[in-house]
Design a protein around this nucleic acid. Structure first.
Lengths: 242, 242
DNA sequence: CGCTGGTTTGAAGGTCGTCAAGAAGGGTGG
DNA sequence: CCACCCTTCTTGACGACCTTCAAACCAGCG
């Protein structure tokens, strides 16, 4: 077990170094990990599940569907992230989420989460910190879609993904593997897949970034940051005194 | 005090009926209420404040500023809402917030919030519920801006504001007072003020809604809901068994 | 009375969506 | 091994939505 939950420990550790007892409690609150294939929908909007998930490996996406068939992706959970924490207290899940690639996940019943706040306050605080960071990311996505041009949005998304992946050891400064196709990018950025294609070409032609067969290569990191107006503070990078 | 904090009690009560002791604890965790004039910035993005606020009366807005002078409004807190709860655990505030009109607020130190989770679990859960609901609203705004046309966005925003204001007794089914000018609406919806003006005219000409001198009059509620594809589930409307 | 902030309207242009169709992989079965 | 799919990517032409620039209008207020 110590191997399979390393990503979540690593993630929460960046807020406060977890003790052995806290790591044990974290392990105990989860169901056994389970494999799901790419495309599997694990929670449907409106469902009354009252549980969260932890993503151990693979990519996932949280999204909402519209009546006209449209889709808006809210976030891309990465290994070590909680998923659907806020549905723990709400009557129904406010969004759906699916595994994007083959993935391994475990479930966390709502009751266990609430118990942790009482029994292991530091671990509880670490979980709340993760939830706060997720909320801050969604807010930044709102800024991204509301006030930036298509090419700026795209640059911003790749910068964020790269930085988050580095935190869990899945990216280097020069690039990372990225299973997202142009439809997924479009639904995340509020664009059409066709326009995403045009924008990716522009980024390539400007020598900033190139995307080929699920591989993102960052060619000019500073140029990208300048273009996107990227300020990574919202990702927190804690270590506070603890 | 029982009068001035009625909005927050009313708000949290919709999750779980608070006991006298819990209401007392809620009152005790706040600083004395304080008056601020419209336009006052209470938290600046990046600031290390480690406290939240409770809005008792008036309108406020949470927003982020961009390098080019642009602004994206994240949310409009209304009386009875917590503000900046997530900055309690993050190193720095991830967004700014200002009073939009003259308002009364009180401060809640981060330590007090964390203590409540341990000492009054039901009250703690109610606060987490409020935070979850806020996060769900931001996610819905993301959908709104990412996947809806300008007129749909506007309809959706007014429907949401109307419903939230009704919950705290500040609106009736046919309309409400709304101090937001067209610049604020634009910054909330990812549009320009000029286009907001045109969209408001369309809504008026279609007989759906009219906005005049800070007064929103809803003329065709069902028509608005159809236009916006409005589904209010994300606002929760609890009462769960408690 | 002039100033200021907010609203309203017009004209022109750019970004992005829509429609249509072709090209490039990757897997499957003959 | 090749034919045949399917998904994904790519490109072009055209049009709509929204922005930008410019200016007029109105109400409140010193």
């Amino acid at each position: 077990m110590s191997h399979v939950d390393s990503a979540i420990v690593r993630n929460l550790n960046s807020f406060a170094r977890l003790s052995a007892g806290e790591r044990e409690c974290l392990a105990a609150m989860q169901s056994p990990t389970r494999h799901v294939t790419g495309g599997t929908e694990l929670v449907r909007e409106g469902q009354t599940s009252h549980q969260a998930f932890i993503l151990h490996s693979g990519w996932a996406c949280c999204y909402k569907l519209l009546a006209d068939g449209g889709r808006q992706i809210i976030s891309f959970p990465l290994p070590g992230d909680f998923i659907g924490l806020r549905s723990v207290l709400l009557r129904t899940a406010d969004h759906s989420f699916s595994a994007f690639t083959d993935a391994t996940v475990s479930e966390v019943p709502a009751q266990r989460v609430l118990a942790v706040f009482h029994d292991h306050p530091r671990l509880g605080a670490a979980i709340l910190w993760a939830a706060s960071r997720d909320a801050a990311m969604v807010a930044e996505h709102l800024v991204n879609i509301g006030r930036r041009s298509a090419i700026e949005r795209m640059a911003h998304l790749f910068l964020e993904l790269g930085q988050r992946l580095q935190l869990v050891g899945l990216a280097v400064a020069t690039g990372f593997e990225c299973p997202l196709n142009q439809y997924a990018l479009a639904d995340a950025l509020g664009l059409t897949a066709i326009h995403v294609n045009r924008i990716l070409r522009q980024l390539r032609e400007r020598g900033l970034i190139s995307v080929r067969s699920h591989q993102v290569v960052i060619q000019d990191l500073q140029g990208l940051k300048n273009l996107a107006g990227y300020d990574s503070n919202y990702l927190d990078h804690s270590h506070r005194a603890s």
